[in-house]
Design a binder for these strands. Structure first.
Lengths: 349, 349
DNA sequence: TTGAAAGCGATACCAA
DNA sequence: TTGGTATCGCTTTCAA
């Protein structure tokens, strides 16, 4: 058994408080005594104050929790998530804070438990689908949190960093529309959770539960509505996950369709790359992505760029030292349309 | 202020123990009482047992700490680290454990503090250069740990998962030697910490502090010694960091050298890609990487493949349920030589 | 400069 | 099935 602070105190013949001071308030005792205490501690094999006990007493932990939907490994698999986390980690580190990665189960009860058990001072909710459950639990715990999609019920001092998803999507869709495309497919991850890969019937974009996907689909639809293509004429495809293979599976169905689309607008670069995989070898189809991850440039993907690392850094700062004025707690980042070779005019047939 | 368990107990008119049981031992009380307690708790806004207090009392935390040298964001920036972490995260998640990412300061005192303050049940030391400091601190804390490079002073029940760095390096270097290369450069990250990018004088590979780099350089040297090229005839290049730009800077010097090498053997794929950047446009130079990260395939890099995710998964398992037989606590993973287009015979001049 | 006492918020044993 | 009690290991006034 490891010795405790008490043991050190006994060995030196001083009180617990003095030993405690030796560790966290060197100015409160003579350096001679301090040295003696530290030496004894070393000799006894005392590992220093127990972090858990210290946290309990002090009332804070020095860590922020990062919440992910479902699989934790997604954090390290999705290129956009990776860049966001790099920024978050950088800023957290500067603030002397660790990051606790918390996987969020898919069910409300599990999500609540995950949130309630995490020893953290605050949460960063990385844009989850069913983040609602988690957010309720976080509010219940009464710790601060920051989201990357505007929460459905945002209070004035809720912290948030993100982009105008709908406007950004509208912009890239306008680019596609200007190229003459009218028969298009929209591709999203878990447009309706649980739906199999492939086309989907949807009365409107508002039906989509995931806020980010919803915003992007709505933006795409806006642009086509402007050129006279109404929602029902758009094909909506869902991929069961935000990965390349899932996207390829979702798009594969199109190749055999009678009137196949001339363009596919995806809600992420990863999905767009999957779409290209599925469409390779067939007639040329324009494809757009979203986020501008490193892979997008290499693949010549037309996409929307958003500052991923910056988003992470800002999220950390909103959590660690929130601006006093509530207005400054909601940060909207700029986006840029990046036109590359994956989009082109409608082929004349 | 958030209500405590005590407050709930008072409100319901039962003892603390009973409220506690309502949360973590439902079978210990009548479901009627349990319901009543939970309802009151909800109504009071009690967020459930405080995780820190629970950890203190129970004696475990439910998290493992992942230690990185210096910048925490490296975890999300380096492709090999990312894959390793994905595996680690996956296995940790299955074990119901969270991951605490802990940045490790470069100085011994800072490293010790970082280790001592982390509220975790164990550590995964992600192959750091100066991991010695951290490992001493971890041993001092008396919690289990797993390393990805054999510790300098490995006890029989120390946990470790890795590859035979030297043998793997020897294999790829033999491939290069068989192609006829004799004038070669070896490129490593922080071969000597603090050294500026570029060539370096080194009496032997054993002088390199970082165990992984040391092993790989030694393996490269082995293969060339076999064909009569002694250590002093090898050019050793150091990059100040394991990234593409740093590697490019380190290799840039070569282009103006009188007798420039016909091959560069890098200690990582990222370094190899940087080397290629620097050498592009000049006479053809064979380049090899290490690890076989996804980018390597796309770039046609000849490299050594090691199972990154698997390594992470095993690390987690060694920590969460260590094998009883000490021998099984040291896992050596297989590696494969992957020959692609970045290596070729020495050009005839 | 040092020490005594009072918690921080919860859990687990054992007795009722 | 429920409650009392001891503790987990530390920090922090406040008084000496």
């Amino acid at each position: 058994m490891k010795p405790t602070l008490q043991a050190v105190a006994d060995a030196v013949g001083v009180s617990r408080s003095t030993v405690s001071n030796a560790y966290c308030r060197p100015d409160q005792l003579s350096s001679a005594l301090r040295e003696r205490i530290l030496a004894t501690a070393r000799q006894l094999g005392y590992p220093g104050p127990n972090p858990t006990a210290r946290s309990l007493r002090r009332g804070y932990v020095g860590a922020i929790g990062v919440l992910f939907t479902s699989r934790l490994s997604y954090a390290f698999t999705d290129p956009f998530a990776v860049r966001f986390l790099a920024g978050l980690a950088e800023a957290a580190e500067q603030g002397g804070t660790s990051l606790l990665l918390v996987p969020l189960p898919d069910d409300p009860a599990g999500a609540r438990v995950a949130v309630e058990n995490a020893a953290v001072d605050g949460f960063c909710v990385y844009c989850a689908g069913h983040e609602g459950w988690a957010i309720d639990a976080i509010r219940g715990r009464g710790v601060p949190y920051v989201t990357t999609a505007p929460p459905d019920t945002a209070g004035p001092d809720d912290r948030f960093v993100g982009i105008d998803e709908r406007a950004a999507a509208r912009e890239i869709a306008r680019h596609v529309a200007r190229l003459g495309h009218r028969r298009v497919a929209l591709l999203g991850d878990s447009v309706l959770p649980g739906a199999p890969a492939g086309p989907l019937r949807l009365a409107a974009a508002t039906e989509v539960p995931h806020p980010t996907t919803r915003g992007r689909l709505a933006g795409f639809a806006d642009a086509f509505a402007e050129v006279g293509v109404a929602w029902p004429e758009l094909t909506v495809l869902t991929a069961p996950a935000n990965d390349r293979a899932a996207a390829a599976a979702a798009v594969a169905a199109l190749r055999t369709a009678d009137r196949s689309p001339t363009a596919v607008l995806a809600c992420s670069d990863v999905l767009a790359l999957g779409a290209r995989d599925a469409l390779a070898g067939g007639p040329p189809v324009s494809v757009t992505g979203f986020d501008d991850v490193p892979e997008a440039a290499a693949a010549g993907l037309t996409t929307v760029r958003q500052p991923a690392e910056e988003k992470g850094r800002i999220a950390a700062r909103l959590l660690l030292d929130p601006p006093a004025e509530p207005g400054a707690r909601q940060v909207l980042l700029p986006t840029t349309l990046v036109v590359r070779s994956s989009t082109g005019p409608v082929p004349r047939s």
